[in-house]
Design a protein around this nucleic acid. Structure first.
Length: 265
DNA sequence: GCGACAG
DNA sequence: ATCTTGTCGC
């Protein structure tokens, strides 16, 4: 796929102020409303995907292409793998690389990993209808997490799926209550989110999977937020549709496994 | 100064 | 994210 806004290529050489300034611009260009033709039913993945390698499919040509992206790290480079899925099957896999130039800094993740992601996505030949990124989208200090950054860079619908909350406040404490599979709890902007009014819903805790027994053990919910061209509620609906029994969405699960192998080679 | 902090 | 085998619990 092709980069639509080259000016937003995440350059690790920028100083922190320039990075933050770029994020404000990105947030201003981002659309946190539905601008796509997707429905949960259309993207639904009912069974866990087992084949990590691309397979040829004559069917499903009419179904949306959902791409999962994940990174792994080696000594001095980040490796990114983008896995394209259509109709519950892997149809293409692309790899990207970029030297690791800056450390991980909360809020500036895209400038550490974005180069490798862009490299992988530029190699992808199919046109994705939705990208699922590891990390936050709108749940970010400047509403420009990695999912939003990549979405605006390529002008493609994206959602962010994180395992931990970066910022924002859930409307209900999730740490003490047991959430059933399928439940969600809205996350609102607070003082840490500098670019929008407090109380704005910027994402959800989403319980993609849960243990049957309401015992002492529970699965931690995912943190879902819109990246670009997707509304908050829709982002969670779509993520729910691409989960197939595991905690993580199938696209990220497969990308996770694929990048793991790719990184140690 | 202290605490918080995606991957 | 990453260093890493077995192990506790459903």
């Amino acid at each position: 796929m092709e980069i639509v806004r080259p000016g937003y290529l995440p350059d690790p050489a920028l100083d922190a102020d320039a990075m933050e300034a770029m994020q404000r611009d990105i947030a201003a260009d981002a659309t946190f409303a539905d601008d796509h033709g997707l429905t949960p039913d259309a993207v639904a993945i009912d069974e866990p995907i087992e084949e990590t390698d691309p397979a040829q499919t004559t069917f499903d040509g009419d179904r949306p292409i959902v791409v999962g992206v994940d990174q792994a790290f080696r000594e001095e480079e980040a490796v990114s793998v983008a896995v394209a899925i259509r109709g519950g099957r892997v149809i293409e896999r692309a790899v990207g690389h970029a030297p690791l130039e800056i450390p991980y800094i909360p809020g500036l993740l895209a400038f550490r990993e974005g180069g490798a992601i862009a490299d992988a996505l530029e190699t992808l030949t199919v046109a994705p209808d939705l990208l699922v990124l590891d990390g936050s989208g709108r749940i970010h200090y400047r509403e420009a997490g990695i999912a939003t950054h990549v979405g605006v860079l390529f002008d493609v619908p994206t959602v962010g799926v994180a395992k931990n909350l970066l910022c924002g406040t859930p409307v209900e404490s999730v740490s003490d209550r047991y959430l059933d599979a399928g439940e969600r709890v809205a996350i609102e902007a607070d003082d840490d989110v500098e670019t929008c009014a407090n109380g704005t819903t910027i994402g959800h805790f989403y319980q993609s999977r849960q243990y049957d027994t309401p015992d002492r053990r529970h699965v931690n919910p995912l943190v879902v937020s819109p990246g670009h061209r997707v509304a908050t509620g829709t982002a969670t609906d779509l993520v729910g549709a691409v989960c197939a029994g595991y905690k993580l969405p199938e696209p990220t699960r497969i990308a996770d496994a694929a990048v793991g192998e790719q990184a140690r080679e």
